[in-house]
Amino acid sequence: MWYTEDGEAIRSGFKKVSRNHPEEYAACFANLDKVLTILNNGNKVGGFKVGFFRPEGNGLYRIGQTGVKDSKEVRLYVYPDTESEIMYVLAMGTKESQKNDIKEAKKKTKKIKVAKKENN
């Protein structure tokens, strides 16, 4: 059973998006819920293709949204740890901030992987 973890999230991006683009913010999280539903139905990460759930490399995925009319492109970055079935919610931002968001989210992904290795 997959569950969501937000302990490693870069909070500033979430606060900014939720304040400036609340509808897009909610739509992104609703799409995260869709992904979790698919995973909890026994599908594997990478075993299905959905347009709004795309790999960004190093295990990082981005979740987008199109549910809001005339919306700002907002992206939610997550790291699905397939072994522990934990969906780490890491970063969020707009198209303008995506380069930096991906960079920071990848750092977090690496940190999670290293910590897991050390614990094992």
Binding site: Y3, T4, D6, A9, R11, F14, K15, S18, R19, P22, Y25, A26, A27, F29, A30, N31, L32, D33, K34, L36, G67, V89, M92
Partner: peptide, 27 residues
């Protein structure tokens, strides 16, 4: 935590939970 709870927690705004729950229901 549910997805809506996580969204509210990260936004630092409890009202977000209702908004996300509504969007999930609408999807």
């Amino acid at each position: 935590k549910s997805v809506a709870e996580i969204a509210a927690n990260l936004a630092g705004d409890e009202t977000i939970k209702g908004r996300v729950d509504r969007e999930i229901l609408r999807s």
